[in-house]
Design a protein around this nucleic acid. Structure first.
Lengths: 96, 96
DNA sequence: TTAACAATTAACCTAATTGTTAATTATATT
DNA sequence: AATATAATTAACAATTAGGTTAATTGTTAA
């Protein structure tokens, strides 16, 4: 349930961009929607996919629903990709 | 064209498993197919997706087409995810 | 309590993905 | 040359994904 949902969530460019936006700080659904040329319901579903993957968390604040990023899930993802690459990080750094 | 195709390719469990198999060494399409409960044409398309993402390379050897992993593409992916996580690798290592 | 606003859910459509079987291509063997 | 083997491509069916508009749910403010 973990890696699969994470990769699926990351496989869409709008969702990746949303995560990049939230990296700078929490935003409401409306603020997120403004940045994209698609409708609010469409963004709402993207948010729902990210939430199911536990990449974002939401809290209601009055009329607004505020989204923030949750990076803890990415730990597993990084480990998986780095392991696939099969690289000792230190060797990697020496090469650069 | 880079990140997008990589994430799309990694978003399918069969394709991730194929990469894990190839991590241990090159394999023919047939050998890969044997490990999954789907038909050869289905695996062939998965291989084609991985190839388009440049995550694998193929060379014909007689009747066989041999696939091997290409991890260089993963560099960009790792950088992207690590940057999203916003973690200084050293801090990370100290915490563990 | 009614009106307005923020956001989600519902219903629907189209495009992309994934799987199958059948046909094709390329190579090797007899 | 004919046959067998390895793999891909073509054609089709079923499912999933992503977009839209319309309807619904929460919350605030008049």
């Amino acid at each position: 349930m973990g890696l699969q949902q994470t990769f699926k969530a990351l496989s869409d460019p709008i969702r990746r961009e949303i995560l990049n936006m939230l990296k700078k700080g929490p935003l409401s659904a409306g603020e997120i929607t403004e940045h994209f040329p698609v409708t609010a319901p469409s963004i709402s579903r993207h948010l729902s996919v990210l939430k199911q993957a536990d990449l974002i968390r939401d809290t209601r604040n009055g009329k607004f629903i505020i989204y923030e990023i949750n990076t803890s899930v990415l730990e597993e993802t990084i480990l998986w990709v780095v392991d696939l690459k099969g690289v000792d990080e230190n060797v990697e750094k020496k090469q650069i």
